[in-house]
């Protein structure tokens, strides 16, 4: 008798998984870099190309690294959230202008506002590859020791900022 129930049992297991699958996003790929040291780079700055921007400068601080581009529509979506977060002074957001035209990036920031103290330029997308970026915007939370603690794939929204980013930053600050 039990062997006749086998197909039904297998099917039930599959259906449960398919049900869970409906709530998952197959396109979101968790980063293996979380918990590892943020890859080093040294890129020219957007507004002052003679100067370089490097994570080494940020040692001892908790900060966000936000990959964005003027051509990216998700970046426009999350931009007001970044502006609010920058205004609140909770955590500094550093930008990385990913595969973009310098003048267009500057126009974009002057038009919509600039939440970043410093913006690095990653015109060849190399830094992006080292950080495992596969679609902008992506945002990394990096702690005082320079370790990546969290990665946001896709636009940040105010809920994520309030419920995840700010508590995490506070916790990291306290360490």
């Amino acid at each position: 008798m039990t062997r006749f129930l086998l197909p039904l049992s297998i099917f039930i297991v599959v259906v449960v998984f398919l049900g869970i699958g409906l709530k998952l996003n197959p396109r979101e790929i968790p980063s293996p870099l979380v918990g590892k040291a943020a890859p080093d780079f040294s890129q020219p700055q957007l507004f002052e190309p003679a100067k370089v921007f490097s994570p080494a400068d940020m040692k001892g601080k908790v900060w966000l690294l936000n990959f964005w581009a003027s051509w990216c529509s998700g970046c426009k979506t999350e931009h007001p959230v970044l502006m609010d977060l920058a205004k609140s002074g909770e955590v500094p957001i550093y930008g990385m202008d990913y595969k973009d035209q310098r003048d267009e990036a500057m126009t974009w920031l002057s038009r919509w506002g600039n939440p970043y103290p410093v913006v690095g330029v990653d015109d060849a997308g190399r830094v992006g590859i080292n950080y495992g970026v596969y679609g902008v915007p992506e945002t990394y939370v990096i702690d005082k020791q320079g370790v990546i603690q969290y990665k946001q794939i896709g636009p940040l929204d105010s809920e994520t900022v309030e419920k995840k980013i700010i508590p995490l930053v506070k916790q990291l600050e306290a360490q």
Binding site: P32, L33, G132, Y134
Partner: peptide, 8 residues
């Protein structure tokens, strides 16, 4: 590649 993007 896997160090950056995982087994995916």
């Amino acid at each position: 590649l896997t160090a950056r993007y995982g087994d995916f």
